[in-house]
């Protein structure tokens, strides 16, 4: 099955345009963050409603309008991004997550979509720059250092388990990027609320982190288990402490510890936030260090 070069080229174009659009969105968010006033109303407290409706149209300040443009750009970027993945898949005639470049792309798309959903639920649009920046860095690294031509995958990866396991793992890892970032913001805000008047309240940040983690964690668990099912068919054992399996296990344990910390007196708040950050750091470590430096069974075509 030959690779359709035209579609592959379109995919690359779309990828680059998505990157450009995201970059523009970051700038818009940054402008909003810089020029917006600190929120007048108290953010949702423990008893308040979760959703703060946007202020009526007439009240929109210039900064807010720019922020809304940023949000629109984010959505546009996500659409282009999705298009690039679809074209990749069509060009190679397989699921578009067969090497690190594609995996990274899917992961970032999942993170962006999660962010878009969160923006609809929480009054946090202005944080867009903080969230999109790491995503942009990953996408940039993906498109340069990790880039691989569109091609079929090797025999071990030719399985529908690839489609299921890798997509679930990358989508959940992408979702987990968001609480990683909001936990950092939480720590900043919690350390010195005065210095960061424009960040949402620590409480909102904490709840956002928790809710996203709680959605992503079962998915991440499922992804690891699906990987084990696939490994049983492909490598002869469902678990063999391959470096990649090991780090996934470790980060799973760390996220389980996060959930426990949230239910343990004295561990809520700051410590829990640190644990969440550690979990995401482990995921990134798994993605780069384990894939690129150590050699395990997890082989990715093209890199």
């Amino acid at each position: 099955m030959p690779v359709d070069e035209t579609l592959a080229t379109y995919s690359d174009w779309l990828y680059r345009s998505a990157l450009g659009v995201y970059l523009f969105a970051v700038l818009l968010y940054a402008v909003e963050q810089a020029f917006a006033r600190a929120p007048r109303r108290a953010m949702a407290g423990a008893g308040g409603p979760d959703v703060l409706t946007d202020a009526p149209k007439s009240e929109l300040t210039k900064a807010e309008r720019i922020g809304r443009m940023g949000a629109a750009m984010t959505v546009l970027g996500a659409v282009l991004h999705l298009g690039s993945l679809v074209m990749r898949g069509l060009s190679a005639g397989r699921a578009p997550w067969g090497n690190m470049y594609e995996y990274m792309s899917l992961l970032c798309l999942a993170a962006v979509v999660t962010w878009i959903v969160l923006m609809a639920k929480f009054p946090i649009r202005r944080l867009g720059a903080f969230v999109l920046t790491p995503i942009l860095v990953l996408l940039f690294l993906g498109g340069t250092v990790l880039y691989a031509e569109s091609a079929p995958v090797q025999p071990a990866l030719r399985s529908y388990w690839l489609v299921i396991h890798v997509s679930v793992i990358s989508i959940s890892s992408g979702m987990l990027l968001i609480p990683g970032v909001t936990s950092i913001l939480y720590l900043l805000k919690d350390t010195n609320s005065e210095r960061f008047p424009k960040l949402p309240s620590a409480d909102v940040l904490d709840r956002m982190s928790y809710r996203t983690t709680v959605l992503a964690f079962p998915l991440f668990t499922a992804g690891i288990i699906l990987g084990a099912i696939w490994a049983e068919a492909a490598w002869g054992r469902f678990w063999g402490w391959d470096p990649k399996e090991t780090v996934a296990f470790v980060s799973w344990v760390v996220y389980a510890a996060y959930l426990h910390a949230r239910a343990t007196a004295g561990w809520r708040g700051r410590r829990a936030a640190w644990i969440n950050i550690a979990g995401f750091a482990l995921n990134v470590f798994n993605l780069f260090f384990i894939n690129l430096v150590t050699s395990g069974l997890h082989s990715y075509a093209g890199l």
Binding site: W241, P243, F249, W267
Partner: peptide
Amino acid sequence: SMRTALTLLFLLALAAMPGALLPQLSL
């Protein structure tokens, strides 16, 4: 206690790491 469980979870995570970073006899 939950606190001990937490500590043990961290210990487990820490103890599993060398297996990913150092070459292993079984592999």
